[in-house]
Design a protein around this nucleic acid. Structure first.
Lengths: 142, 142
DNA sequence: GTACAATCTCTAGCGACTAGAGGTTCAAGA
DNA sequence: TCTTGAACCTCTAGTCGCTAGAGATTGTAC
């Protein structure tokens, strides 16, 4: 096991610049180098990067991943902290789903109301222009 | 109607630095200034900024808002382009809802499976570590 | 006239990468 | 052994939509 950054990249499906980025922010340890200063990775790095990638796929933020990684390095400790991190994330996912669902229905209404005439009569533009037109509450989305 | 940037900010509920930012990126026109170079806004600016804010609340990107604004300035044109912008946005909201819904169920499973023992036995950590453990497909979420 | 809140410009930071320039190293084939 | 060219290196800057802060100036109420 003596992988170049490209090998690691293909194996774990994380792009090369992203691997370097993770090293830079301290998520991955700096690996040993060849004489010509190229990075060489081992089995441990494969596991760690897989962990990171999977956690990112699940939408965890880098800081949460940092905590999860340090928890997984202490197998005797209780796992409540990991639990709490996942729960916190779940709640934020649920909040975002709620917001987006509201949003979806507003956008659908806009499209339903549109009569496809000239802009002057377009409900879409009107709703946007009259900011008191509809009083739905929807938090920041993006 | 001769509003300072703070007045405009309170009236439309958009923060002062954000108003300056919108001017900088060309979303709002540069207003006239007092002798001491402070910005002074009129009714037209209130409408335009309301439009922008409402569109942002609905999750439209700045580029989409630019297009919507320029459409609303041509009331004789057909409104299909506005329609298309809204539809495109709706579709992306729907995609995100779908992703997040998948995500939610994965996170729930993780929490359900957790036996609250030591980290060694924690399903949460295990699932993250074994990246082949579960083969759900979920696109990038952010 | 004086205090002080509001305004000004400018730069940098957020999160999680991504892109590109310009240079070096590695590995395979001749 | 030499050569080619893909892969690697570092560094900087850009993405998006703001937000924060420094340090200076202006407006306004008393």
């Amino acid at each position: 096991m003596d992988l170049s950054i490209g090998d690691l990249s293909r194996r774990v499906a994380v792009k090369v610049p992203t691997i370097r980025y993770y090293e830079q922010i301290g998520l991955l340890p700096a690996p040993p180098r060849t004489e010509g200063r190229q990075r060489r990775y081992g089995a441990e790095d494969v596991s760690r990067l897989s962990f990171i990638r999977h956690a990112r796929d699940l939408g965890f933020e880098v800081d949460a991943i940092r905590e999860l990684l340090s928890l997984s390095a202490r197998p005797d400790q209780p796992c409540e902290p990991a639990d709490r991190i996942v729960l916190r994330h779940l709640e934020s996912v649920e909040r975002r789903i709620a917001q987006l669902t509201l949003l979806r229905s507003e956008l659908r209404h806009m499209l339903d109301d549109c009569r496809h005439g000239p802009v002057r009569e377009c409900r879409i533009i009107q709703v946007l222009a009259d900011h008191d037109e509809c009083r739905h509450e929807h938090g920041k989305v993006s």
